[in-house]
């Protein structure tokens, strides 16, 4: 393909223009509006508490059950809902109800909320309170099983108590709160999360 000089020049110019356009459209500097504000991000996953009524079965009742279905405590209930509140400088900026995932709400509850703040020094308060309570007190529903030996269940009784204890400890406490004062610049994020080991809310602000 031999081209006259003028056409070659036009072709070169068009090719360069096309490449420049390609490059320009590949990296278009766009302002991220989120960088204008400071942010509080609430993010955690935790198991909700189980709210249930339990009844202690007698030895005779247990004996009537098939061997693989024998549990000393027979419980009915559901998983608790929690009220979530975020306050900044004393003003409530977020109110929400959270509960476990899944159709029966028996999965962990996952929280992910972001709220913009005016950059600067802010007093932040986060409160998570259980909304559901038992209509009648029932000590065993809280997982505090009596440390008696079980003549009918034997080792299985101990395992049942341990399992109830473990589930109880896995659940998030009925009330959590966090108060902190932070200085956040524009675009900076304060993360409030749940520390499962300390069973308390905690904050992180990255490297800022």
């Amino acid at each position: 393909m031999s081209l006259p000089i003028s056409r070659l020049a036009a072709l070169s110019a068009a090719s360069v223009a096309a490449l420049v356009l390609l490059r320009a459209a590949s990296f278009v500097p766009v302002h991220d509006v989120r960088s204008d504000s400071a942010w509080v991000r609430l993010s955690w996953s935790a198991r909700p508490e189980r709210i249930e009524h339990c009844r202690r079965l007698s030895d005779a009742e247990l004996a009537e059950r098939p061997a693989h279905m024998r549990l000393r405590l027979e419980c009915e209930g559901r998983f608790a809902r929690y009220g979530l509140q975020l306050m900044v400088d004393g003003a409530v900026v977020l109110v929400d109800t959270v509960q476990g995932g899944g159709l029966r709400n028996d999965r962990p509850m996952h929280v992910l909320r972001e709220t913009p703040l005016t950059p600067g020094t802010r007093a932040v308060r986060v409160v998570l309170v259980r909304l559901d309570t038992l209509s009648t007190p029932d000590a065993e529903s809280e997982g505090v099983a009596t440390p008696e030996s079980d003549a009918v269940l034997g080792d299985r009784g101990a395992r049942e108590r341990e399992e109830r204890q473990r589930r109880s400890e896995e659940g998030i406490p009925p009330q959590l709160s966090l108060d902190t004062t932070v200085t956040l610049g524009a675009g900076r994020v304060l993360l409030v999360t749940y520390d499962g080991e300390k069973r308390a809310l905690a904050t992180r602000t990255g490297g800022s």
Binding site: P29, S35, R188, V189, L191
Partner: peptide, 24 residues
């Protein structure tokens, strides 16, 4: 001649003011 630049690493605690958007 015009290498593709590498923007800064993502930081979950910081939203940068300008992000190089790829229009395509």
């Amino acid at each position: 001649f015009v290498p593709a630049p590498l923007p800064p690493e993502a930081d979950p605690f910081h939203y940068t003011a300008t992000v190089p958007l790829n229009l395509f």
